[in-house]
Amino acid sequence: MHYFLCLLLLMVGLFGALTQKNLIKIILSVAIIEHAVNTFLIMVGYRHDGTAPIVDRAQVAGSSFASGAVDPLPQAMVLTAIVISLGVLALMVAVAMRLYHTYGTYDITEIRKLRG
């Protein structure tokens, strides 16, 4: 059920990226896809009634902690992915603004026409 909702979010973003004509809207669709994938990865590592993968001062790390905590590996990867997505978003916006500077529009069909 939760996996399915996540996939639905991904598909909404994909549909937007395929059908939108405006560059900013396409960037936003890519951002939605990123959110969907991040959420999905965290979900895969979730454990029912698990604890956060941070050792508490009271409890000692050991098998009891290891069998009760959620998976830390996807979390670390997602943390990396989030920051990369911010950098990539900045790059995409930079390209879009440069295109606007040159062609005076964000519309990709117009840009294609103007290039000739």
Partner: peptide, 20 residues
Amino acid sequence: KVCASLFLVILVLSVLRVAA
């Protein structure tokens, strides 16, 4: 690293807005 680069990006973006 992250702080400096993000600050630079937003600075550069705002500068181009003036230039446009």
